[in-house]
């Protein structure tokens, strides 16, 4: 049953020390951020440092939010690349891939299961960040009703609900990259190579996104809407970037999913 294998995949992912080390590091991001703000006596002028950093000391709620902004360009894609680059190449490098395939696992099904594993990690990573941020925010700073970017105040539970949507947004942002990593992973038997190549792609996308000369391709870049989740903190909630991000990520999943399938189902497994 596919259920058995997906369960096995996810349980193996979360039994690896590497996964826990990455999640532990992710949980340190909001802690480091909040501690730094707490220890610095001077008030941060608005507009300096990461967006919303100035609000953190007034409302602990903003720790999670700011941590998302800090981790989205670099650390989350980095850990995602490790997991996605390892999917097929990691199995191939230790030779177990041939035993999975003759068990037998259909190759298309194995790709789906691997993608499900990557999705599970993306969820775990963003929610680790969110929960760690909420906890440290509540410990170090006052927590109360939240003033949105549009100026209205909403209750804390309503604000936390919006934060959950932000976490879903960031999870979705990582899925296109997972598909890219999955594809690269089918090309090699050296997992580190696939991980590094995935990081490179994520970085190049973000560099291109910052070059006004190639503005014409910006809307098609994997990372273009990665930081668009600020719109979720407006009243009424603006879902424009959410929708655009979903479409871009789905396109990347479709294209790189198809490429992975085409490559993996016709490949000689010689490792």
């Amino acid at each position: 049953m596919t259920g058995s294998l997906t369960f096995s995949e996810i349980s193996i992912l979360f039994r690896r020390r590497r996964t826990w080390a990455m999640l532990a590091t992710i949980s340190l991001i909001p802690i480091a951020l909040a501690t730094a703000v707490d220890l610095s006596s001077s008030t941060i002028p608005p507009g300096e440092g990461p967006p919303f950093l100035d609000r953190v000391s007034q409302n602990g709620f903003f720790v999670s939010f700011t941590a998302m902004i800090v981790a989205t360009p670099l650390f989350l894609p980095l850990t995602m690349s490790v997991v996605a680059g390892d999917t097929i190449a990691g199995e191939a490098s230790i030779g177990i891939l041939r035993y999975l395939l003759i068990a037998p696992v259909n190759r298309g099904r194995l790709l789906l299961v691997k993608f499900a594993g990557a999705l599970a990690f993306a969820l775990a990573a963003t929610f680790t960040l969110l929960i760690s941020g909420l906890i440290i925010g509540a410990i170090l700073f006052p927590v109360g009703s939240v003033t949105l970017l549009s100026g209205d105040a909403i209750s804390l539970p309503a604000a936390i609900f919006r934060l959950l949507i932000v976490a879903v947004y960031v999870t979705i942002s990582l899925l296109g990259l997972s598909a890219v990593g999955l594809f690269i992973s089918t090309l090699t038997v050296i997992p580190v190579g696939a991980m590094a190549a995935t990081v490179v792609i994520s970085t190049v996308m973000q560099i291109l996104d910052n070059l006004p000369q190639v503005a014409v391709i910006h809307p098609y870049l994997l990372s273009h809407y990665w930081l668009g989740f600020s719109d979720l903190l407006r009243n009424p909630m603006s879902l424009g970037s959410f929708g655009s991000n979903v479409i871009v990520q789905l396109c990347y999943i479709a294209i790189f999913g198809a490429l992975s399938y085409g490559r993996f189902t016709t490949k000689d497994i010689l490792s």
């Binding site: 058995s4 294998l5 096995s8 039994r15 690896r16 177990i96 999975l100 068990a103 037998p104």
Partner: peptide, 15 residues
């Protein structure tokens, strides 16, 4: 990083 037994459980779950 898995025990011998868990390796077999994994491969059996694949079938």
């Amino acid at each position: 990083y898995l025990s011998g037994r868990d390796n077999l459980m994994r491969l059996d779950a694949s079938d």
